[in-house]
């Protein structure tokens, strides 16, 4: 495998759109050809060479190419978009659409990435060492076919809307997830090792969500079925199985509806309780703030 390294010279004033930076975009090209490739900022087109220094050379095909991107990439979009093979390493934080629509190969982002990472993903491995933004592994706007295959591993936290309209593949989040994980999911598997917020599995038709931490508010459309042992990273864990979303349509097999599955680790404290306690505390705090007589009277 040949390695080509791109180092950004200075941060762009607006955001740079550089979907060409992927093993597929660079493979089989000479250094001069690569420097002449287009990147975009607003309504203007620039060459890759105007923004990046180049070292090494790509292989003949994407499979034989490793792309390393370094420097401050926090204002660069679309890195590794639509890559189909080979390897790519992003050494710093990156902006939106990292590994969007990727179908193969391995893409490692060493820092944080912004929203829409791995949207519409079909295959390959996307590894994010830091945190990810909203809509990780989701569908593109208006598409009802979200992530179809491959694996996304986020070592930090994710913001909201992870796995929106997910159809297949796997998302593993080592940290916490914000609201709306697996909304509209029709397949695939999501593992959250930290805590989840409300709307977990909302409108889920099929697929699996495994939660090792807690969820603050359960969806009303999930019903408890039984406890089961589930294998997570080779460890057997006792989990409660809920099925849902009961408000959604579900196809039937042998007369039995197929539901989405939500596994929540047994050791987790009962979510309803913790919420009640939190609410009570918030109410107390509110009362203390509005302690003056007129305001208590009107309240």
């Amino acid at each position: 495998m040949e390695t080509v390294t791109l180092t950004i010279k200075k941060a762009p004033t607006l955001y740079l759109e550089a979907e060409i930076i992927s093993p597929d975009g660079l493979a089989g090209k000479t250094a001069d050809q690569i420097r002449a490739l287009p990147v975009h900022m607003g309504n203007e087109e620039f060459t890759l060479g105007e923004f990046f220094d180049l070292a090494g050379a790509p292989g003949a095909t994407a499979e034989e190419t490793k792309v390393v991107v370094t420097g401050d990439l926090s204002r660069v979009k679309y890195l590794g978009m639509k890559m189909s093979g080979g390897e790519m390493v992003i050494e710093s934080d990156a902006d939106m659409y990292v590994g969007a629509w990727m179908s193969g190969g391995t893409l490692t982002a060493k820092g944080n990435v912004d929203s829409f990472a791995g949207i519409g993903m079909k295959g390959g491995l996307l590894e994010i060492n830091g945190n990810a933004g909203n809509y990780t592994g989701s569908a593109y706007r208006g598409d009802w076919r979200g992530m179809q295959g491959g694996k996304i591993h986020v070592k930090g936290n994710v913001r909201s809307d992870t796995g929106y309209f997910m159809n297949g593949g796997e998302i593993v989040i080592d940290g916490d997830a914000d609201v709306h994980v697996g909304t509209h999911a029709e397949g695939g598997k999501i593992v959250i090792k930290g805590n989840a917020k409300s709307r977990l599995g909302g409108q889920m038709v099929e697929g699996t969500i495994i939660l090792l931490g807690t969820v603050d508010v359960m969806m009303p459309g999930f019903k408890y079925v039984r406890d089961e042992e589930v294998d997570v990273d080779g460890k057997n864990m006792l989990m409660s199985l809920y099925v849902g979303d009961l408000g959604e349509r579900h196809r039937k097999r042998k007369g039995e509806p197929i539901y989405g599955k939500l596994y929540i680790r047994k050791a987790a404290p009962a979510a309803a309780e913790s919420r009640e306690v939190r609410l009570a505390r918030a109410r107390e705090a509110r009362k203390a703030r509005f302690a003056s007589p007129e305001e208590t009277a009107s309240a």
Partner: peptide
């Protein structure tokens, strides 16, 4: 969102 989901569960006659 939870209440809307609950409406849908109720419309389907689920618990």
């Amino acid at each position: 969102y939870e209440l809307l989901s609950a409406f849908r569960v109720a419309i389907r006659g689920e618990e």
